Amino acid sequence: MSSVRIMPSALCGRLTVPLSKSTAHRAIICSMLAGQDDILPPDDNLSDDIIATQEAMEALLSSGSAPVTVDCHESGSTLRFLVPLAAVLGKTAIFTGRGRLPERPIGVYLDCLPKHGVRCETGGGLPLTVSGPMRPGIFFLPGDVSSQFVTGLLLALPLLSGDSRIVMTSPLQSAPYADMTCSVMESFGVKAEKGDDGWEVAGRQHYTPSNDFHIERDWSQAAFFIAAGMLGGKVELCGLSRSSCQGDRAAEMIFRSFGAKIRWRSGIMSVQAGGTPEHDFRIDASQIPDLVPVIAAAAALLPGRRTVIFNAGRLRLKESDRLAAMAEGLSNFGANVKEKPDGLEIEG
């Protein structure tokens, strides 16, 4: 059994932030539906989740009428983005996964898709067998489970023979991800009109190649390096868009409030330690759930400050229970953390 010894040090230096996984999932799907398969930069390392979406799209777009197996690995995005698309394409698809993915919620689709002609067969979770064709119409979705279900429908409904509506029955959490989906779709020639309670999606649309689309760098991953800069060394981040529609763009504002000294010059963000905050924090994580782990870790190092993170209950349904994992991990390092049903309370 190997061991790792961690010594105190300050992380510093310059790096190019990895590609936005959220944008890449959407771009792969849209571009492959447009017959374009070169959307990813050739020199970037791809995550397992992105590879899962590539391979899944290849399976769904394969010729022939035989059922196809769609292995989503551990990627919830791959699963939830592609279930409606399989039905629209008229494929019989058997969705499988590993890790905790077979246990993650898919009931939203099991409730709404059969009402539109889709046959869904499951013993509970994965494997899930889906067969179409899917009919257009009105799709009612709850907003408090995952915006990934909204994205799955947004990507698929434009390909139907008639117009459809997505109606939210409760406020949508992680709403910026749905906005991102619409933005990427529009880059490939497909539109969905946002209204007060959901989206209007015209049918009979076609995805078209985009020669000038570029996948953004990832604010979710950048947040960890922003925290590192705030905690000691000077870190410079290249490639981030200041006008990004990614919800985790909020990381800059949050870490500024924590005391980080952040400057932009020629498109490069530099981060280093700044002042000490003089007040406690309450952070609503409903639109930024992926930032919770790094916010919690940084908050534990704010002397004399209490940070309450709330509206993060969906993190219990990820590849792990992220709230429990962060509470346990930080506590093991001596942090004062209380686990709440929908968040964390941290004494710095």
Score class of each variant (00 low, 15 high):
1 M>G: 14
6 I>Q: 04
6 I>C: 10
10 A>K: 12
16 T>S: 11
24 A>I: 03
35 G>H: 08
43 D>Q: 13
51 I>T: 14
56 A>L: 15
59 A>P: 13
59 A>Y: 09
60 L>P: 10
66 A>E: 15
71 D>T: 02
80 R>C: 01
88 V>R: 07
91 K>H: 05
92 T>S: 13
94 I>M: 09
94 I>R: 14
106 I>E: 04
114 P>G: 03
124 G>R: 10
128 L>C: 03
129 T>A: 11
136 P>R: 04
142 P>G: 00
146 S>L: 07
149 F>C: 02
155 L>F: 09
159 L>Q: 00
160 L>K: 01
170 S>G: 09
171 P>M: 10
173 Q>Y: 12
179 D>Y: 01
184 V>G: 01
199 W>F: 15
202 A>T: 14
204 R>M: 08
204 R>N: 15
206 H>K: 15
212 D>Y: 12
212 D>P: 05
215 I>K: 10
225 F>Q: 00
231 L>V: 02
232 G>N: 03
233 G>Y: 04
235 V>N: 02
241 S>Y: 00
242 R>M: 13
245 C>N: 14
248 D>A: 08
250 A>N: 02
253 M>I: 10
262 I>Q: 12
263 R>S: 15
276 T>D: 13
281 F>T: 05
281 F>R: 05
283 I>S: 03
289 P>V: 02
300 A>T: 02
302 L>W: 01
307 T>V: 14
310 F>R: 13
321 D>Q: 01
321 D>F: 03
322 R>I: 06
332 N>W: 09
332 N>M: 08
334 G>N: 05
338 K>S: 15
344 L>W: 01
347 E>P: 04
